[in-house]
Design a protein around this nucleic acid. Structure first.
Lengths: 337, 337
DNA sequence: CTGTTAGCGCATTCAG
DNA sequence: CTGAATGCGCTAACAG
């Protein structure tokens, strides 16, 4: 394997084998370039024989386009984020773009982002890592940035989210329609728009029908925080007939504790609804009513936007797209089977 | 933003501002190169003023080293795979390497892999995508390949797995120690070594104590297949007192059905054990006994191997490292709390 | 320790 | 439609 470097096959090698010039080789591998069918096939044959592939580094050096999209991602243990990353990665792959991922534990420091930029990423996608430092760094980088699942109020950033307010309203109305009157809310931490929007929408739905929430708690979107809040809530003896958690993971943690530590049955004693429609929520143990954020459509919008930004060199930044979520009703909010 | 290309700052810009040559700039950004402290600081100051970062593309073109590690990953909905990817990505980042991920739905076709290679990846890590086509393609690429969580019998591939046989033996012994005699096994599909090794080890543990499994089924490591197998098993009326599933997801699917559709209680009516020790298994609804594969250690070995391969140009390929798994006993195999 | 020279592998002018 | 020449941004050899 030590001959790896020596073995490297360059365009001039296939040019010689095919009896043409390097330009001819380059052209056959460049979309819509002028090459005659004959030379093209000669080149392709020689390339196949030598197992030649153009060096993307050298190419991007001259085209000023790397084909690499930087992705900032965190908390893959949350199945919803894992799904976004997977769907996005697949969509980029199908578009001929390559995802360079920065797995940032909230600490997407300047140097990390700088490393990403040194690879000349054509665009940056931020999935869920919201750090103030990251936001600052963004403004310094002259690259199209799109935030999926987060809203950034920033001229350089195009945001794509679910219409969280409206979707949360759907949940609120659904719980009211089920006859609930003593309703609790488990919101997220207030530094992300997605969380506050859900809170706003949900409370608005209640207010429209003259209902005030019995209790409002703040979690951090983890299963653990759902567990902790459940212990606090049920331990205090507050009486509720329904709880909306701002994501599935918290709803699931809450259900786990409600059943295993307080003997509460869902939905008999308590209705529970979540948000994200993650696969886990559909399992038989939970059958969790939730909101499908339509990840596929969000990703489609993101990739589409990136492609356009590559063409027009990133005019049209700072836009805000919203996708409509869909209420998925399951047994966790239904009386009986 | 259209002036993005124009705004690009190159080494010559900071050289001029600092009043030195391009080489001086290059050297200050090259680890252990000869630069005097004074020029170094002059360069750094100018670089900071201009917000200069070396172009990794141009650099790798000359150093023949990209710093990019290709990762082939699939099925992020399985929290165990998601964890491997996240931990690996973090470890690479901390080493100054960048992960270029190919999210392959079992269809890591030749062209996809070729795209990865065109970016001159220094090494390739395969997490869980086992396709015969992929294996063939690997042999053509002169790049160090390391398979995490899979064993490839291939001269070019270094494999790192948990000692699946031994770990599965631990599970078998544990179930026997709990007094179980009518034991079922839910194995994986037989095309991956990890699955067959677990099956082998588990059955060996039983055989050593003169016990034959009541039933052996094959799943595909998804929650759905756990569900389907559970329906088949419990529907047939076979009497068992314990079941070992070759991963957590299948164990969880099986538990879900056992409880919701057949009224079976775990562990009162049936002990259940899984494999992977994924976070989900620790939730209060499952409290699943499982095997911790020590992902951190596997990843550490992988990154360490990659670093060495980068230094010696990939001699020492074809090795096989094994990590010892650890049995994590929870209530799913314990009589009472 | 520094600046100058040369070239990594390729796409793209420009003549032909 | 093709080949020769030029340079993308950078590091590495060399001579000072």
């Amino acid at each position: 394997m030590s001959e790896r470097r020596d073995t490297r096959v360059r365009s001039i090698d296939v040019a010689r084998l095919a009896g043409v010039s390097r330009s001819a080789v380059s052209r056959t591998f460049t979309p819509n370039a002028y090459v005659s069918p004959e030379t093209r096939s000669k080149v392709l044959k020689a390339a196949a024989a030598l197992n030649y592939h153009p060096n993307a580094m050298a190419r991007s050096l001259i085209t000023q386009r790397s084909g690499i999209i930087g992705i900032v991602s965190a908390d893959l243990q949350n199945p919803y984020y894992a799904k976004i990353l997977e769907v996005l990665g697949g969509a980029l792959r199908d578009t001929g773009l390559a995802p360079l991922v920065l797995f940032g534990d909230e600490t997407s420091s300047k140097s990390q982002v700088a490393q990403l930029l040194s690879y000349q990423v054509d665009a940056l996608v931020i999935i869920n890592a919201v750090t103030s430092t990251l936001t600052e760094n963004i403004s310094r980088m002259k690259v199209p940035v799109v935030a999926v699942n987060r809203y950034f109020r920033h001229d350089w950033v195009t945001s794509i989210t679910c219409d969280n307010q409206h979707a949360a309203e759907l949940v609120g109305n659904h719980l009211l329609d089920q006859g609930c009157t003593r309703i609790g809310l488990v919101a997220g931490n207030s530094d992300a728009s997605s969380g506050t929007d859900r809170e706003t929408g949900f409370l608005r739905a209640l207010a429209k029908r003259g209902v005030a929430p019995v209790v409002v708690e703040n979690g951090d979107y983890t299963h653990d925080s759902g567990v902790a809040i459940a212990r606090k809530l049920f331990g205090s003896g507050a009486s509720m007939d329904a709880i909306f958690c701002c994501n599935d993971l918290m709803a699931i943690g809450l259900m786990d504790v409600a059943r295993s530590e307080f003997g509460l049955r869902v939905p008999d004693d308590l209705l529970v609804a979540g948000f994200d429609n993650s696969v886990v929520g559909a399992w038989q143990s939970y059958r969790l009513t939730s909101v499908d954020q339509n990840v596929e459509q969000m990703v489609e919008l993101a990739v589409h936007y990136i492609q356009r930004a590559l063409e027009d060199d990133g005019k049209e930044a700072g836009q805000f797209f919203q996708v409509q979520g869909k209420l998925v009703v399951r047994e966790s909010t239904g009386r009986s089977h």
